[in-house]
Design a protein around this nucleic acid. Structure first.
Lengths: 149, 149
DNA sequence: TATTGTTATACTCTATAACTATA
DNA sequence: TATAGTTATAGAGTATAACAATA
């Protein structure tokens, strides 16, 4: 171990051995890159995830989307308003419940999501390149386990 | 693989294979537990990290603390104001630069940090318990690597 | 001129209470 | 009485510009 690394470790007072500290720094770095990757589509990470979930299961209600992505219902309303104003999603009639909407993507939404997914793949490749020598599948499994805390 | 897990995977539209999505959920879960662990000390994660860094290297300037923890200088001012108002830190005179302060913990700050570090250890143990079967050292190494993105 | 700490401010995210229309 | 979506709002956390004191 070289001197500069030892010094940094001392300077952080044991912080860099904390899983939470390491998680936060990693998450900030990955989101920074992901946000940049989505910028040309006018999407934020949350927008992307909402579109992806609706595309995977058309007909979903707002509450169901919120539960899947851990987005509070009031906050999801704003996000969907914006996506709808851009013509990316539709709030269709739900089969037998006039309180809720059946969400779906427009053709434009499908097209944009397809492009965004390519950008997301390139972003993921950049992360993968850094993880050479690590078992990414195992890392994601560990992260999912941690999420159950 | 059982049916419910397959369904969930489909419903998330591939999102749960994204490193960023997994990172975010894990970070939220860990911070939720960490925030709860620190609550009885009246500290937030950021307060804890600031105290830990100052304790590790007394005499640090505000800017140096900000660089170590990725906290913008204006935001750090507020945090230090609060810690100082509680009598946990001191803004001493810097040796040969009257623009900056030499930061240090008060005796009270040292005592509080010691207690908080114990709580942090218990928190870390809870995470470790979940990670049985995983190589935590390798996971943290991977997270640090990801942070260089 | 450049830097340290500061003030003011704004923007995003997230969280909660209360309303409406339906069930 | 409960639920889905909505509105309004409040609280974190984070970001930038500009100023005073000092280098």
């Amino acid at each position: 171990m070289d001197r500069s690394k030892k010094d940094q470790k001392a300077a952080l007072g044991g912080l860099d051995d904390q899983i939470g500290f390491a998680l936060r720094l990693a998450q900030v770095a990955v989101f920074k890159d992901f946000i940049a990757a989505l910028k040309m589509f006018g999407l934020r990470p949350t927008d992307f995830s909402v579109l992806a979930v609706i595309a995977a299961t058309p007909g979903l209600k707002q509450q169901e989307v919120g539960e899947l992505l851990h987005i509070q219902r009031p906050n999801l309303v704003i996000i969907l308003d914006q996506l709808q104003a851009r013509g990316l999603i539709m709030r269709g009639n739900a089969p037998r419940d006039r309180r809720s909407y059946a969400l779906s993507l427009t053709a434009e939404g499908e097209a944009l999501l397809e492009g965004a997914k390519i950008a997301q793949g390139l972003h993921e490749n950049r992360v993968d390149a850094l993880l050479e020598g690590f078992d990414k599948t195992m890392i994601i499994a560990a992260l999912k386990r941690i999420s159950t805390l």
